[in-house]
Nucleic acid binder design. Structure first.
Length: 371
DNA sequence: CTTAGGG
DNA sequence: CCCTAAG
């Protein structure tokens, strides 16, 4: 019995076998890794039969609502691997255990570009659950009415619907899409809210391990970033790229970044490099950095929608996915969506060869983490 | 125009 | 994220 309920899915093999379109043969006695690659191949295959996934998720196009299967599915998912978001996870708040969980959560989406959001949301929720009175939490949560980064879902017991619910069509179709356009408008609000939290971070005992925790994430992210920024030669340009990548939660995270980074850059440098990035974009085309000027962080919610879209239309139907799932997102062209999916696959593949096995879509394959 | 692949 | 070639 693993510490995170690894063995608590008695129905998993059956479900998965059915999900594999009949090839029950070897899915039972094999390791999770095999199942993972099966899943990956399945998702990568543009010609696969969507009905398999659709029926598995209870998300067939003829069945747009949350089916009972969907309900089971949502509730069946074990959130015990997640940090203490209240209610769902009654495990102790010991830092060791919490650290372990963060490690897992880190791996959950680290290479997926959306860690920022998870980090930010954890930052908020941990503050709430560990260090602030309940009323404070409620107050802070209520300040985030825009919820551009999905913090609402992640910051209280509503976390479960946030993750599992967003794979249900009825969820996003009624509320996610209209929110997409207002993300930029309210992002400042959230930033302010996070900034206000920052001052209170000083009294957080969690900050210590948060530092190392973020450091690890930062370093690992750096590798990903470096591949993206390979063509940038000067350290200045490289830095601007890195700082840009941390933009969405620059406020609260800056501190931890600076704590962890051995000899990196001050806040001013971070800010200036960021602004210079914009300037260099407008000023001159002295290098190739004039591309990617519209880069926008992918939110967890967006990734969820992407997975939803692929589950519904299949890999390769990028325009369909865009029209249905990202209709209100003016950015996120079909190509962007395709690129993101490509990156997700890449990240999941890389994670496979790390020290741990991570299911990129635990809510999809209902799979626990392997150690 | 959409998709795939490389940069 | 951008560019391009191929269907």
């Amino acid at each position: 019995m693993g510490p995170f309920g690894i063995d608590t899915t008695p129905d998993f093999s059956d479900t998965f076998a059915g999900f594999k379109s009949g090839s029950v043969d070897e899915s039972l006695g094999h390791s999770m890794e095999d199942k993972m690659s099966d899943m990956k191949h399945f998702l990568m295959d543009p010609n696969h039969d969507n009905t398999a996934v659709d029926s598995f998720l209870g998300l067939g196009m003829e069945n747009m609502g949350l089916s009972s299967k969907m309900e089971e599915f949502s509730h069946g998912f074990d959130f015990s691997f997640l940090p203490d978001y209240g209610g769902l996870n009654s495990c102790s708040t010991q830092d060791v255990e919490a650290g372990l969980k963060f490690e897992i959560l880190d791996g959950f989406l680290d290479g997926v570009d959306e860690v920022e959001d998870i980090y930010a949301s954890h930052d908020l929720s941990s503050i709430g659950n560990h260090f602030l009175p309940e009323t404070e939490v409620k107050k802070k949560v209520s300040e985030l009415d825009g919820d551009p980064y999905g913090l609402m879902n992640l910051s209280s017991e509503s976390f479960s619907p946030g993750i599992s619910g967003s794979i249900g069509l009825s969820e996003w179709s009624k509320e996610t899409v209209p929110h997409a356009e207002s993300q930029n408008v309210s992002s400042e609000k959230v930033k302010d809210s996070l900034d206000s939290n920052e001052s209170e971070d000083d009294k957080k005992p969690l900050s210590t391990f948060l530092g190392s925790w973020v450091k690890r994430g930062k370093n690992r992210k750096k590798n990903l970033i470096n591949t993206a920024c390979r063509r940038l030669d000067s350290s200045r340009e490289r830095m601007s790229c890195v700082s840009y990548d941390f933009r969405p939660r620059k406020g609260p995270m800056k501190k931890y970044i600076n704590i962890s980074a051995e000899n990196t850059f001050s806040d001013d440098q971070l800010a200036s490099s960021e602004s210079e990035d914009d300037i260099s974009v407008t000023k001159t085309s002295r290098n190739r950095s004039d591309r990617r000027k519209h880069q926008r962080m992918w939110t967890v919610d967006e990734v969820m929608k992407l997975v939803d879209g692929i589950a519904h239309f299949g890999v390769g139907k990028w325009t369909d996915i865009k029209n249905l799932f990202f209709h209100s997102a003016a950015h996120r062209t079909p190509v962007d969506i395709r690129d993101k999916w490509r990156n997700l696959l890449k990240a999941s593949y890389n994670d496979k060869h790390n020290y741990r096995e991570v299911c990129l879509f635990p809510f999809l394959c209902q799979q626990k983490f392997i150690f």
